[in-house]
Design a protein around this nucleic acid. Structure first.
Length: 401
DNA sequence: TGTCCACTGGAAGGGAGGGCTT
DNA sequence: AAGCCCTCCCTTCCAGTGGACA
């Protein structure tokens, strides 16, 4: 086995969750946000803000940076609290209110249970604590479109309605989204309330990505560990992907990791290429792990169909195969409507490719294609739930003629 | 131009499961 | 224990639809 060299001095710095003291090329955005939030320091309610920008354009990093500063200010007696909730992780109204409340309520015995209460009750309890604090609360809802897409605008109604009952304290909401169009579908009243101020985060350009990487690399690596073209290469690859800085950092970190594991002394472009493949594969296999048994069965149906040379198939064809698999593995059969939804979900996750297509007299349906690397297909096939399917032998055909 | 197919995708609602309150 | 709430996964119902074909 190759000896594992230690070539990364400080791994934490290369994590995208690490908040550096300096955020290159985002000073203007920090200033913009700070300016809007400034009234909070005099205990006036700042405007709500909607932050729009693609993945890895520094939205979350900027907010966390400001949050860190606000927390410092809070400890020094400025009455302003910063609360961050990621709506991708907790996406139900209950989950979001639960999360916010428990960041506010410090007394462990008074914490809100993770289920069981009505939303009104949490809201009331939360208002009491917020009022008691006599502060301005800045509540950041990251990936806010996720929650609104799934549950409608309720959560936003709940939160903004709190201000109406508060006398001393106030809350301000900062919504973060990577979907520029999501406000189009909002009720106009909500849209104007949430988007009192809008800030757009443009994608990073290649040179900016280089700066970001260089700055972190300086603290993460010893001199000479990175070959000269590694950072430009990482930056170029990520710039192709909509200027995603998170992605650039992941590339650099995983490249170094691969170099270490190989026992190499230097990180080269070859490592970056391996890292790129690994990231893509890991992302899919992570998704696969979270699929329910039913989703996996639907995916398996698509895999089997494409192995039978049906590289394009319809919902009906998938459903037929699905019913067959359910029978073999002894699993309950869902309705076609439900399976159609599961197909749409797999499409959204990027595991398959599906588009609605009309076949004229033959009807209108989805045309489905498998879009999964071989490694992933093998991973699904080796899942325990399909053991009976893999060992399945079709009953001998009795020919009549 | 109208018909018709095989669905799509939205809406409403059921029921199980988690847990709280009284 | 009974009643309540929220979430998740699912079913049922149904209006809508793109485009080949007659």
């Amino acid at each position: 086995m190759a000896k594992r060299n230690q070539i990364v001095k400080n791994k934490k710095i290369l994590q995208s969750s690490y908040i550096p003291d300096n955020l290159p090329h985002r000073k203007d955005k920090i200033d913009e946000v700070v300016e809007i939030l400034a009234p909070a320091l005099n205990k006036d309610k700042p405007s709500n803000i909607l932050i729009i920008g693609k993945t890895g354009t520094g939205k979350t990093a900027v907010m966390n940076y400001i949050g860190k500063e606000l927390k410092k200010a809070d400890e020094e007696g400025v009455n302003c609290s910063f609360i961050y909730v990621n709506c991708e992780v907790v996406d139900t109204p209950y989950g979001i209110l639960y999360n916010i409340s428990n960041q506010i309520i410090t007394d462990i015995s008074k914490k809100i249970p993770f289920t069981g209460w009505s939303l009104d009750k949490i809201l009331n309890e939360m208002s009491v604590y917020i009022e008691k604090e006599d502060k301005i609360f800045i509540i950041v809802l990251d990936e806010i479109d996720r929650s609104i897409q799934k549950n409608g605008e309720d959560i936003f109604y709940y939160l903004t309605s709190i201000n109406e009952v508060l006398q001393k304290s106030k809350i301000s909401i900062i919504g973060i989204t990577n979907n520029a169009k999501f406000t189009e579908f909002l009720n106009p009243k909500i849209r104007s309330r949430l988007g009192e101020e809008k800030i757009i985060f443009p994608p990073y350009k290649v040179d900016q990505l280089k700066d970001i990487l260089s700055e972190r690399a300086e603290f993460a690596f010893d001199k000479g560990v990175l070959e000269d073209d590694v950072i430009p290469y990482c930056a170029a690859l990520s710039a192709q992907e909509m200027g995603d800085a998170r992605r650039a950092l992941d590339l650099l970190r995983i490249s170094a990791d691969i170099a270490e594991r190989n026992g190499d002394n230097k990180v080269t472009c070859a490592h970056v290429r391996s890292a790129k493949n690994k990231i893509e594969l890991d992302a899919v296999s992570e998704v696969i792990k979270t699929l329910t048994v039913q989703s996996k069965t639907v995916l398996m149906s698509i895999i089997l169909n494409s192995e039978e040379n049906l590289d394009h198939m319809t919902t009906g064809e998938v459903y037929t195969k699905y019913k067959f698999i359910c029978e073999v593995i002894g699993q309950s059969v869902l309705s076609q409507r439900r399976v159609a939804s599961l197909i749409s979900e797999l499409d959204m996750l990027g595991i398959i490719h599906a588009r609605v297509k009309s076949f004229g007299k033959l009807g209108r349906t989805k045309e489905i294609e498998l879009n999964t690397p071989k490694e992933i297909v093998n991973m699904i096939k080796s899942d325990d739930i399909f053991i009976d399917l893999i060992n399945y032998k079709p009953p001998k055909q009795t020919t009549i003629f």
